[in-house]
């Protein structure tokens, strides 16, 4: 059941973005930025965490989930470290994802080169 929930909600978030691409002048980069910022704001408003609890990876794997991780990290940082947590919490929470992207980015670009199209 939780696979179906993840599938439907993840797919739904992608459909919204696809409609924005096809029917507005928003470029993909702007849509991604809006998704992350939306994830942050919704989490602070307490609206996103219930979606994560219900849809699991369907809510965490899309980029709104990245915003959710940042926001949760900041909240956790504040409860543990007070004001310093405002600054340090976000990056701490998503350190794994960003570090992985950078490191794999380096490794894969050392191994592979772009192919002709």
């Amino acid at each position: 059941m939780n696979y179906l929930l993840a599938f439907v909600f993840g797919g739904f978030l992608c459909v919204i973005a696809q409609l924005l691409i096809d029917f507005t002048k928003l470029t993909p980069a702007r849509i991604l930025v809006s998704y992350v910022v939306a994830g942050v704001i919704l989490t602070f408003l307490g609206l996103y965490q219930p979606l994560v609890d219900l849809f699991g990876a369907g809510a965490t794997v899309p980029l709104t989930g990245f915003g959710n991780a940042l926001a949760k990290g900041v909240m956790k940082g504040i409860s543990e470290k007070g004001f310093l947590g405002v600054i340090s919490g976000g990056m701490t929470a998503c350190a794994a994802g960003i570090s992985a992207a950078i490191f794999f980015g380096l490794i894969f670009s050392l191994i592979f080169s772009p192919k002709e199209k």
């Binding site: 691409i21 993909p28 772009p114 192919k115 002709e116 199209k117």
Partner: peptide, 18 residues
């Protein structure tokens, strides 16, 4: 050249865009 034009004017070749 498709590849030299893409990287200068648009996106990297392996970037997944529509």
């Amino acid at each position: 050249h498709f590849c030299s034009a893409e990287r200068q004017f648009r996106f990297p070749l392996e970037y997944g865009g529509q």
